[in-house]
Design a protein around this nucleic acid. Structure first.
Lengths: 190, 190, 190, 190
DNA sequence: TATGAATGAGGATTCATTCAT
DNA sequence: AATGAATGAATCCTCATTCAT
């Protein structure tokens, strides 16, 4: 049991699950995508459901880890937000398929899977809230800012912005410039 | 064939589809929920897929129509935005189940269904863009505002805000006060 | 309950049953074909199966009655056989659809229906055997002729001959000349 | 996937299809008859329809191949015809069930299946016509014989003769003596 | 008497999972 | 460890039959 084969299965699973949905996805197709036999999958994962969960965890971890790295770099809050937008876009591009499931809380899943995912999602909130706190401390953001609301606004805007650009305008991730959106959020509509 | 039975089936479908997902939903359960026989559904809808599409259309129309009504009332832009947030929250509350599928582009569906849904979604964008234009004309919003970006920010913020409050904080729709969020969007983070 | 509506249902049934088979036939289509509501059929027939049986009886009676009439006319055995062939062809043409089921013992049916049909079929045998007996008495046929075998040969030949001409050569019933076939049977192959 | 299991499925299919008809046959029963799971059938055949077609093909090929072998043996035309009758009877006995469907053009089937079956049927005609031609060349049959008509007469007579003996008189295949029938066909009725 | 909306038993087919190789 | 043939539970959909109008 090489770890490497495990990852290949997870990647194939991501492609198939996001294309066909949980119930619509067939183990056979995942096996083909990973170049293994159907039975082999069961050497690494107990069931389809378990495989699905592992795929989500795997991808969300990748997302969070990357996001954290992006925010670690010393920069102004505006630069951080642009980095955050770009990272999100790049990730969306790389995992268009998974992202559709992972990025949203609206997905359609066995109830029990939900809780875990929501908790993971909180991880992302925490990261962004951290960034905002730092911004306030540095005086880059007004100090009466409601950090929770700001996080929600940022996450919502990112999702809609990149969702529209990639899925509707069909733009490549490299042709999307988030700076104006970031400016607008920072300045407000008035 | 009464129209009324058609609607009952759609409502039952909404509950079941959103709880179990498209593939996970069982026609039997939808039938039970609508208090009709399995076969009856097929007198009104050609297939599970068709029923799903009709449910989406039905709900999105209800959403758009209501939203339009809310924005028609003469008020300041801030009041309109609060109305819009509240309407969204109320709708989410009433149709928690459907909303999860309708409000998001992440659902898992036969490809062809997508286009139609995206186009419907644009309807909502247009409505909100209309509101923003009016706000600029009235001088309530700055005139260099990028209307498209602002719409995306508003829609994204609404989704995240009410999603968090309802699904995560488990608040009732009546206990959610969107005013601070609206203020923040209008003023910006700086 | 007019007798006339009963017959229309039987005729529609004949068309649909023979086109789609017993199990493949849908009561709905039979109703449409007879220009009545689905429920109406059950005013005349107890069940699909009963309707099928009645259709068979109806058609076989028509066949036998017509055949008897043809053979009653005073003529030579050869003329009678030609008449018999032509009548069969005409009937096949008029009821192509039913004939496929009625004329053959190979049809696929609930076992219990079989017996009755076989017995009806014997009716046809009896008629033809009667004709042959008469032919022997009149000296038109050799008196050591095995009447049963001859009947089988005649019935088999008719079926194959018209089946081939109508279904395979796609000839119209009026363009089929059975005289050579009759001659061949009478003279033998040697 | 052993070829042997394929054949067992075909045999079970033959039994069930001919007993219950195409639409009446249940895959479950075929599976039981072949001692396999329902799903297994679909590993070998795409659908019920495909299975049906394959069963027909399989059986018709067996029939034609056997018939050809019988006629290859050097003998008089009368002996050949007796052989042909006996072979037909033996086959009918062995495959009573399938034969009912295969031997007749009256079965109830998706239109497209028909063409192929008719074409296969022609194969049998060709074989018998070949036998007749040879008989004429050898002077065993009169040289003005219409080969097509004679073929039709022979095939029709065989079908009726064995059909009557086996299905109606309930005789075993070994107790049926076709010689008198052959003689009658050769000598004619007069 | 006629209708057709409603019903639900029934059956073809799919696919997660197992297990002999 | 890896495979994929075999399995049968599960589910969509059909259609004979009923019954309120």
């Amino acid at each position: 049991m090489k770890e490497n084969k495990r990852v290949e299965i997870i990647n194939a699973a991501a492609t198939v699950f996001s294309r066909d949905g949980f119930h619509g996805a067939k183990m056979e197709n995942i096996a083909k995508g990973a170049n293994v036999g159907k039975g082999t999958i069961y050497g690494y994962f107990d069931s389809k459901e378990e495989l699905f969960k592992e795929m989500i965890r795997h991808t969300m971890n990748e997302y969070k880890d990357g996001m954290e790295k992006v925010l670690k770099i010393e920069r102004s809050i505006k630069e951080k937000m642009i980095g955050l937008f770009k990272y999100h876009g790049g990730f969306l591009n790389k995992h268009v398929d998974i992202a559709k499931v992972v990025m949203s809380e609206q997905e359609v899943l066995p109830r029990e899977m939900k809780k875990e995912m929501i908790e993971d999602n909180i991880g992302l909130f925490k990261i962004i809230e951290g960034m905002l706190k730092e911004g306030i401390e540095k005086g880059e953001l007004r100090d009466d800012l409601d950090i929770e609301l700001a996080s929600l606004c940022i996450i919502g805007s990112i999702s809609q912005f990149y969702g529209k650009r990639i899925f509707f305008d069909r733009k490549s991730c490299d042709d999307i410039y988030p700076e104006p959106m970031v400016d607008m959020i920072l300045q407000g509509l008035k």
